[in-house]
Amino acid sequence: MSAASDCKTILDNISAYLDGELASTAYEAIERHCQACPTCAALVSGLRDTIGLCREAASVPLPDAVRQRARDGVRRLLDRNVEKG
């Protein structure tokens, strides 16, 4: 494969690579290519950071006021249904 076609392959397969969906040979080919191609290495690294940012943000709890409203709503619903029997 030429360097340019390698870069195209990286772009097409980068998500599959990051999600662990590639066979070992394809995975290793991307690893090897990135060692020799700073542009693709930066792309992989940038996407990995983006995914990390999303996952990190997902663990941030909702604002306290929203969580409190959720808890209050649940207790009101359950108490009302206990009273009704």
Partner: peptide, 13 residues
Amino acid sequence: MRARPDSARSNIS
């Protein structure tokens, strides 16, 4: 055999 980077493993689990 599939190769799984750490990020993929952590998302699956």
